[in-house]
Design a protein around this nucleic acid. Structure first.
Lengths: 346, 346
DNA sequence: TTGAGAAATTGGAACGTTCCAATTCAGATA
DNA sequence: TATCTGAATTGGAACGTTCCAATTTCTCAA
């Protein structure tokens, strides 16, 4: 409630002003603006001329208030610094805008207090619906509350443990499974995994995929190969440094995501190692930059832009039919092989 | 006007309902919500209890209508696929949110028609102000119109040729000048420039900086060294391929921006060249990823996040004082030397 | 010329707030 | 007891739209 306010300086031109200018009633103007067929063409034309003559701009807030509708949707993103989320955001925004909606966007930066304030703010603005990528450790109560407030909610990427929500995400386990299997197929046997330990379901699933692939190929999992690092470029550097320091050094690493992988590329290069020849790396996400890194990165493509578009579609469907049962869309990852994952050097 | 509408299903709880429940008038409730000192503490407490008991949520749209105010600001970005803009967006959003504003965000993808629709849409929603990074070839008229509509406007990155607007950007010419001089200082003489030709002021300025540095150091500028490519990773690849095909091959390249530079890193790597040893590259922007590429990229840091924050501050100031003369903030670029720009190989 | 029916237009209440002016209520003073 | 004061509370108009019901205007057949 304690918010800055800004007075609109000039008294704004309303539908009534247009009505006067055109010599009709405000009801007529309203109908013209809505393109109603009830109005005689000449009258409509006259009104339209007055609109441009006066420089009238439609007040959607007033209309929405009366109509109890909204063309605003909220998008809440936890980490825009990661291109994965930026690409997803682009996918969402595009789809929503094309469908006639406009996006209230907020970035939580993984901070729960910010996320909470953002969500109430979006409710106060009567967002028609919400797409949320929850911050870590988002309490189930928060989701429930906004859900029960009656505002359609689509969750992306991080699936809540409890409750049934519309959700779009990817099959993380099969993703890292494929990546690991690919490396094994290339001849690698000592393969590290770089990611956060105990950082929530997405982490667990990706690690599990790695472990399962190792196991199913008869490779004894060495616990030290699983490196606990933050999911950042810096984390990737740090993780690969640990790997390089091992006495019986792994020859490949499966990275939690693409930016971790990018970090390893930088670090390995600085150690004079050619990735793809001296060491193999795989990423996860399929962000655009993977195609142009040095070397281009083998990754698990879960099409961030497409995920965003799918989430937007899901929200649109939900808005059209609020009573429909919750939907769940899980993208199947695709292994994209590039130069970063060559066979081990002799 | 032709937009989807979504009826709010449940009759929403209003200030009047709260008033009934608390046994006071709606005026009293309103005053309590605003934290007015006029209301007796016990009354206020009673009202607050009713608020939570009923699950009342403040209707900011109605309030804004009555009050003719707005806490919404519009942010219009032309290319979110470029991390430069994503980082800038993060800087803006953070600052605005902390100041009590919420951001309507739209992505134009350099499309003028989209940009136009977006801007009117934001006016219809009565955004208190706008931060705009104009798409290429944005007609001056468009800016003027929204400006004259009385809505405070801050332009970022691409300065309009005509009119005086609040603006924040960077000194492009001195940026590429520094980058080029650095390469010359490293011993390079044949230096290419990779960027778009005739793509607007930013391009011209960056190219001019390169040309001036060459000239001032007595190096005859060879026109073929200036390569016309789109400002993308793919463009970087293409450009560097042209460079490598030259008979008397340059030993270094100044890139229009960081993502072009990233493209060259990928391509040069595929040609078996070690950047920093066999070829030198500089970027421009200073996006976060430059610190972790392979090799880490020497770049001209214009602090995208800071630019965003400065733009947000400028808008806040403009909102506080709409009549103040237009401000202009030009960030001075900083050369950040990393491994990608070593001396030429013997 | 009239009247019926269709077509076009309009008045006014409503949406959920804010805020001004007015009212009520205690307690203090004369 | 009557009056005054200041504090606390309240009624109702207003913000700019939509939309229902009602009214006006037009057209054409009888």
């Amino acid at each position: 409630m304690t918010q800055p306010q800004t007075k609109a300086k000039r008294a704004s031109i309303t539908i009534t002003d247009v009505a006067h200018a055109a010599g009709v009633s405000k009801s007529t103007v309203s109908l013209v603006l809505q393109g109603s067929p009830l109005i005689a063409p000449e009258t409509a034309e006259r009104v339209r001329q007055s609109v441009v003559a006066l420089g009238y701009v439609y007040n959607r807030r007033a209309a929405d208030l009366r109509r109890k509708s909204s063309n605003v949707v909220g998008i809440v993103i936890n980490d825009l610094g990661n291109p994965f989320f930026a690409e997803m955001l682009v996918g969402m925004e595009r789809r929503l805008f094309d469908a006639g909606y406009i996006s209230l966007m907020a970035h939580t930066d993984e901070r729960l207090d910010v996320q909470k304030r953002v969500l109430t703010s979006m409710q106060e603005y009567h967002a028609a619906g919400l797409i949320l990528c929850p911050a870590f450790d988002t309490p189930a109560g928060l989701l429930e509350r906004t859900h029960h407030a009656g505002i359609p909610l689509v969750i992306v990427v991080r699936e809540p443990a409890a409750g049934s929500y519309d959700f779009v995400g990817a099959n993380h386990e099969s993703g890292t499974f494929e990546a690991t299997r690919h490396l094994i197929g290339q001849g690698h046997r000592r393969i590290a995994f770089l990611g956060r330990i105990g950082g929530g379901p997405v982490y667990e699933q990706r690690r599990t995929g790695y472990e399962r692939a190792m196991m199913e190929n008869g490779i004894a999992a060495v616990p030290e190969w699983i490196i606990d690092i933050p999911p950042t470029r810096e984390g990737g550097r740090e993780g690969i440094r640990q790997v390089l320091a091992m006495p019986l050094r792994p020859t490949a690493a499966v990275c939690y995501n693409d930016i971790v992988a990018f970090g390893t590329l930088g670090e390995l290069g600085e150690h004079g190692l050619v990735v793809g020849r001296d060491f193999a790396i795989t990423g996860f996400d399929g962000v655009a930059a993977t195609a142009h890194s040095n070397p281009p990165l083998t990754t698990i493509d879960v099409r961030p832009g497409e995920q965003g578009a799918v989430a937007a579609d899901m929200l649109l469907k939900r808005l059209a039919d609020p009573a429909a049962p919750p939907r769940r869309h899980i993208l199947e990852p695709r292994l994209v092989v590039r130069q970063s994952s060559g066979p081990p050097s002799a």
